[in-house]
Amino acid sequence: MGEVIVVTSGKGGVGKTTTTANIGTGLAVMGNKVVLVDTDIGLRNLDVVMGLENRIVYDIVDVVTGNCRLKQALIKDKRFEDLFLLPAAQTKDKTAVSEEQMRELTQQLKEEFDYVIIDCPAGIEQGFKNAIAGAQRAIVVTTPEVAAVRDADRIIGLLEAALLAEPKLIVNRLRPSMVKKGDMMDIDDMIEILAIELLGVVPEDEAIVISTNKGEPAVLDKQSKAGEAYRNISKRITGEHVPLMNLEADGFFRRLRRLFGA
């Protein structure tokens, strides 16, 4: 029996879909059977990030309304045998699926897969409620900004009210150089404010833009810092203990300081 994990954030644009694509792919690389479920009905994007947009025939609404069988709607990934996507419908809205239907769907999926990763829409309305309905674990994604952390706090409260205890935090798009200058909140600041356990830190990385352009998750890019962060996060999800990677670039002044023994 697999595990259902929802990726959520409250605020839009902080990287829920990128995170879902990368940890899903990361878990598949490790040999797990994984399905990614896009619950952002009306604004589907996970298919594009995964590079699978041309293969969609049926979607999640077709499945829950009995328009097709679950197997027919699952799209197999280009690269991995055991990685699948259940796309959102693009022409319906969030009310096309109910919480009860989501619970049934995730129940069915976790019998087949080791990990069911749910990409939650932004907001706290029906789409959010649907996305968390069948989940056992939750990952909250935020960026080091006041608005994103504030929304993350609200989401954590709602997850706890829904008895999804102990959500884990991913801080996305961190810029180590700005943190160093004191112009960006650091990890400790956010952990302290949100009182939540950290799952990982993903640095700002141009490789994400390039990988999204191509439809190939950055987790597969061995050169990318963000990719490395997502590989670490995937390992932590399976229970492996991986220390946080060193985000500080070994810059000129750092070396200079070391030279003088500072």
Binding site: V146, V149, R150, G182, D183, M184, M185, D189, I193
Partner: peptide, 12 residues
């Protein structure tokens, strides 16, 4: 005066 302190205080 670092802006992160402003951010933290506003967030709090």
């Amino acid at each position: 005066t670092a802006s992160k302190n402003t951010a933290k205080e506003r967030l709090r």
